[in-house]
Computed example of a mutant assay.
Amino acid sequence: MRHHGDAEVGGGLADFAVNVRAGMPPAWLAERLRETVADLAAYPDPGPARQAVARRHGRAVDEVLLTAGAAEAFVLLARVLEPRRAVVVHPQFTEPEAALRAAGHEVGRAVLGKDFTLDPAAVPDGADLVMIGNPTNPTSVLHPSGAIAALARPGRTVVVDEAFMDCVPGEPESLAARLPSGVVVIRSLTKTWGLAGLRAGYVLADPHLIARLAEAQPLWAVSTPALVAVEACSSPAAVVEAGAWAVELSAERDRLAGELTARGLYVVPEPRASFLCLRVPDGLGIRALLRQRGYAVRRGDTFPGLGPDWLRLAVRGRSANDALLEVLSDLGI
């Protein structure tokens, strides 16, 4: 459950294992971050960043909690909520389940079937906490927002991990602006802006739950540089910049998926995030061969619902992707 893409990289390997956008942050954001050094003597003030997130999604300020990445949000929810029957929809990012188990909760799994599209019937009626990713890591599947919103009902909390939603041009399936009753949305800035080392994310929820999460959060949990990044990346100009990148990403992702499909590999249909999930014969063996050739990819067998024949590939630039395809050809794939 604690195995993640960063464990796959190092030693000079070309990184196709970690889903963080390469070559980031952009120069303008890096300069803003460097400027924060002058303010590090003062305690962090989350006010401006919190207001920026609220404006970005059309929410009230008291519906926003800033966190040290999405991972802290999962831990806070696991500490504050007291589910009788928690269910995590898999395959997906394993930290939500790991956080729940670490907090002493029993966790059930709703494992999706073919193509990993959401089947509401897979979620037990008695579940009072449901966690799901959208778009989902590692499958890259984008679920309809209406289908996720339909999971909400009185007495149930639905937590939606939208860490990769800004990979989708226009974000049509995001629930951040709608925020139906009983739905909690978690967002992250680390993927699109290359800020994994900074830890910057936030929770959107009803004010009562936000207040409870804030009480459970350590004081000054989000650093001044991270707050500056949140504020900057939530500005209208930054949202436009991220949207333009999402369009470019979509085109290259679809090209790469087409190349892999043409080789007879099964790529999970209609990928919408910054990675592809594919099934190959002897996935672990192929992964090992790729490492020998200098390429790191993410093993899939650590995700519930997948197995040893699954790999996850981050989508990089065209030249890097073509180099990977050439190595795959050399390996007979």
Rank of each mutant, 00 (worst) to 15 (best):
V183P: 02
E231G: 06
L204C: 04
S223W: 05
L179D: 03
K191D: 15
A176P: 05
T224Q: 12
A237W: 04
R199K: 14
A200I: 00
T224H: 12
R212S: 15
R212D: 14
W193C: 04
S234W: 07
E259T: 05
L204E: 02
T190E: 14
A216G: 03
R178W: 04
S235K: 02
A251L: 11
L179H: 06
V222N: 07
E171Y: 04
A196Q: 11
G258M: 00
A232N: 09
A226M: 06
L175W: 13
L204N: 05
R187L: 10
A232E: 15
L209D: 02
G258E: 06
A211N: 08
L204A: 07
L260K: 06
A177K: 12
L209P: 02
W220S: 14
C233L: 10
E259M: 08
E173Y: 10
D254V: 00
R199Q: 11
A244K: 14
E248I: 01
L209E: 02
H208P: 00
L204S: 04
R199H: 12
A238T: 09
V240R: 15
G243K: 04
I210C: 09
D254L: 02
A242W: 01
L204H: 08
P225R: 09
L179G: 03
A177L: 03
S234R: 07
A177M: 05
T190C: 08
L256E: 08
V203D: 00
E252Y: 00
L219Y: 07
S250E: 15
L256W: 03
A232D: 12
G182P: 07
C233V: 14
R199D: 10
D206N: 06
A242P: 00
A221N: 12
A246N: 07
L219D: 15
G182S: 13
I210R: 06
P225L: 08
A221C: 09
W245P: 01
L249E: 09
E215A: 15
P207A: 06
A232C: 09
E252F: 00
V185I: 10
H208A: 14
A232R: 03
A244N: 12
E259P: 00
A237V: 04
R187T: 13
I186E: 00
K191M: 13
A237H: 05
V203H: 02
A246F: 04
L204P: 02
K191G: 05
R199I: 01
V203G: 01
V247T: 12
P172F: 08
V239R: 15
S188M: 10
S174G: 11
R178T: 14
A238Y: 12
Q217C: 05
Y202N: 03
T190I: 07
E259N: 03
A214N: 13
A244D: 15
T224A: 13
S223I: 05
E231H: 02
L260I: 10
T224C: 08
A251C: 02
L260A: 09
A232M: 09
A214C: 13
E173M: 13
S250M: 08
E173R: 12
L249Q: 12
A257E: 02
Q217Y: 03
A257G: 04
I210P: 06
I186N: 01
W245Y: 15
